[in-house]
């Protein structure tokens, strides 16, 4: 190896490690910022950040009042970017989400009025209370990252992330998301009730004012976009890819599952694993990254069989069992 090559390699290595360091610092800042508002939920915060870096969308499913909206707000507030909130109701129309063309009598032209989806972070609150038609308008925008109205296409801002919350489907007045649409979310997380100490701390912090008001942005959209691109360049070896495919296809053979995970979930799992690697400041994916993300990434996409329902097995438990049987390559 010549000196020149060596220098080059060193430079490349240092630039890579620089971006890795930057990613770690930025993500840690965001996490720290969010933790000031949401106590006792560091893992949910990190999964949200992984979703952000992986350019995915996050579905938070939990009972009302555990901080779903707060999590989305805290994330948006920590980043210096636009954030819209859509409260889904049964009478919400698709146009309210995507935007409408309005006839301007002064200029005698149609003018596009962007809908609520035009923001870097969109909080779709109680998405399962909207009518299926509106839901699908939202989900199309999520997938395409653009909105087409009257034949014209309007790109959505970058970065773009939807954080949707939904109440458990058993609750009244809900239209459960079809599995095809749940598949579009990179992850589904639950917050769960805070533990005693965290709940007491929460009461303290909410006693005098809204802690969200204290949050200041710790990073901006261009930085975040750069990190998203850096995530894509994380190395995933053939072994890791095989492992991912093995896991996903094992869910398809699992007798306890009526429907296994889709090929799209393989893609999502890889993206998420890369984001987790970046978040940890590593330039390559380990099977550990994949394994740890499987419940969050796959559980909401599979359908349990009748036996599993009868056994009261959760999708997370079944998927976890599947992973525990797949050899690591």
């Amino acid at each position: 190896m010549t000196t020149a090559q060596g220098a080059e390699a060193t430079a490349a290595g240092s630039s890579r490690s620089a971006s890795l360091d930057e990613a770690r610092v930025v993500v840690a800042d965001i996490a720290a910022s969010m933790e000031r508002v949401i106590s006792g939920k560091p893992d949910a915060i990190r999964l949200a950040l992984v979703t952000l870096l992986a350019e995915g969308h996050l579905l938070i499913q939990d009972v009302p009042g555990v901080g779903k909206t707060l999590l989305a707000k805290a994330l948006a507030r920590s980043i210096d970017c636009t954030m819209h909130r859509i409260q889904f109701t049964p009478d919400l129309l698709p146009g309210d989400v995507t935007g409408v063309s309005v006839f301007d009598q002064r200029t005698s032209t149609f003018e596009f009025r962007p809908g609520a989806v035009f923001a870097s972070i969109v909080l779709g609150d109680e998405i399962n209370r909207a009518s299926p038609k509106t839901q699908s308008a939202m989900l199309e925008a999520m997938e395409e990252r653009q909105v087409t109205v009257d034949g014209r296409t309007y790109p959505l801002p970058q970065p773009f992330m939807v954080i949707a919350t939904q109440n458990p489907v058993e609750m009244e007045g809900t239209y459960p998301l079809p599995e095809a649409q749940r598949d579009r979310f990179l992850m589904q997380v639950s917050l769960g009730y805070p533990d005693r100490a965290a709940e007491v701390a929460m009461l303290d912090s909410h006693e005098n004012h809204d802690p969200l008001d204290d949050l200041l942005p710790v990073t901006d959209a261009p930085t975040l976009r750069r990190l998203q691109l850096a995530t894509r360049s994380i190395h995933a070896s053939e072994n890791v890819k095989r492992y991912i495919v093995d896991i996903v296809s094992a869910t398809r053979r699992e007798p306890l599952l009526r429907l296994g995970a889709s090929p799209r979930s393989s893609v999502h799992l890889l993206q998420a694993a890369k984001a987790l690697s970046l978040l940890k400041g590593r330039d390559h994916v380990l099977p550990d990254d994949v394994q740890s993300l499987v419940p969050a990434v796959l559980a909401h996409r599979v359908l349990l069989s009748t036996e599993a329902h009868l056994d009261r097995r959760s999708a997370t438990a079944v998927v976890t069992d599947v992973v525990a049987r797949v050899p690591v390559s």
């Binding site: 893992d43 999964l47 978040l279 400041g281 394994q291 740890s292 559980a299």
Partner: peptide
């Protein structure tokens, strides 16, 4: 093979700072 615990997502020797502070917490997706 016996089913075992999955990898802990935040347990990494490259982790520092806040990520490390969260070490030991597994994702609870439900």
């Amino acid at each position: 093979m016996k089913p075992g615990a999955l990898a802990e997502p935040w347990d990494d020797d490259g982790v520092s700072g806040v990520a490390a502070s969260a070490a030991g917490l597994a994702p609870k997706a439900e």
